[in-house]
């Protein structure tokens, strides 16, 4: 087997919040590992506070990891200096959630889109301007609008600009952090189709971070489910959505409302939420786990309270972090 394009091992990030007596350490990401293969999409999904965006930020080195390993195309990114990192930026790009704040309001689209070529010293055949116009056309923007400013575009169009900037140098991996969550459904569908089409055409891999489970299902080959900084389940798409193993994944999937005529659906309604229920030690999900609250014996519960479950393979291509799956 060839080495994966991106390999993340035991990634950890702690933040220090507050100062003085209110000072406390918050673990945002707690030992996360996954791989992304060339040309493939890995979806990372979870609710707020699960650490998915922090993970994405660490992969593109916007956030410095506390510990762990990130290998991209054979090079270790952790601790790499900016000068050594720059050539890798060609291959590793990011699309942000809010296109409004990630585009410089005082630059024209043309300037924004030619920046990657200038920064990397790439001279496309036919010149930068022609390439920029080609890019705009490819992402569904009118190339005649290259002299306009970001605020003259709608939200969906701005996200297209962000995508065009990310793919300008034909990277091998694009990290997308909630790229469609600020968009309306009809526009969201346009952008999702664009992302899928670009992947077909250029063969890049996506690390696709989102809270919307349906969107993740639509785009991903592999899916990682996170809860309070940890991976609770990882599987190939069909496996995960058809046979979720972890009780959290099960509850999450059953909570998503489906736009079709309602038939009796067995919904696993979780109690509480992640802000209220953050147990210390053991399994972080136990405070909301329906199995912990119900069927498990007292001895089994002790295991949940004391022992933090690790991600163990259940079958080829599916693993879950639960003592009782």
């Amino acid at each position: 087997m060839t080495a994966p394009l991106l390999e993340v091992r035991d990634l950890r990030k702690t933040f220090v919040r507050g100062h003085g007596s209110g000072r406390r350490v918050v673990t945002a990401v707690d030992g996360v590992s996954f791989e992304v293969a060339d040309g493939e999409t890995l979806g990372v999904v979870g609710e707020s506070g699960c650490g998915k965006s922090t993970t994405a930020g660490m992969v593109v080195r916007l956030i410095e990891p506390t510990s762990g390993e990130i290998r991209f195309a054979g090079t270790s990114l952790v601790g790499l200096r900016e000068r050594r990192l720059r050539p890798l930026r060609r291959e590793l790009q990011m699309v942000f959630q809010d296109p409004q704040s990630s585009l410089n309001p005082r630059q024209t689209v043309g300037t924004i889109l030619s920046a990657p070529f200038q920064v990397q010293g790439v001279q496309p055949s036919g010149g930068v301007l022609a390439e920029v116009r080609h890019l705009m056309e490819r992402v569904g923007l009118n190339p005649e609008h290259y002299n306009r400013y970001p605020h003259q575009f709608s939200g969906g169009q701005r996200q297209r600009i962000g995508i065009a900037r990310a793919i300008a140098l034909r990277p091998r991996l694009v990290v997308c952090d909630e790229p469609v969550s600020a968009l309306d459904v009809s526009v969201q569908a346009q952008v999702l189709n664009l992302l899928a089409g670009l992947q077909d055409e250029f063969g890049m891999a996506y690390l696709f971070v989102a809270h919307d489970l349906a969107v993740v299902r639509h785009l991903s080959d592999q899916v990682v489910v996170m809860y309070l900084g940890r991976v609770v389940e990882q599987a190939a798409r069909e496996e995960l959505y058809r046979n979720p193993a972890h009780p959290y994944t099960q509850a999450l999937l059953s909570a998503v409302p489906v736009p079709k005529v309602p038939e009796a659906r067995k919904r696993v309604l979780l109690t509480g939420d992640v802000v209220q229920d953050r147990p210390v030690g053991g399994c972080a999900f136990r405070s909301r786990c329906p199995r912990f609250a119900g069927e498990l014996s007292a001895g089994d519960k002790t295991r949940c309270t004391e022992e933090t479950p690790t991600l163990l393979p259940l079958s080829p291509g599916q693993s879950a972090a639960c003592h009782f799956v």
Binding site: S154, G156, D184, V185, S186, V187, Q188, A189, Q190, L192, N193, A196, D212, L213, A214, V215, R217, H218, R237, E238, Y241, L253, V256, V258, P259, K260
Partner: peptide
């Protein structure tokens, strides 16, 4: 119809979405 065609589904894997063209 356009809205229904735009929504990715949690309960099934869809091929390409059929979005509504243009903007409001």
């Amino acid at each position: 119809w356009g809205l229904l065609g735009s929504i990715p589904r949690i309960d099934e894997t869809r091929g390409d979405l059929a979005p509504i063209a243009g903007q409001p």
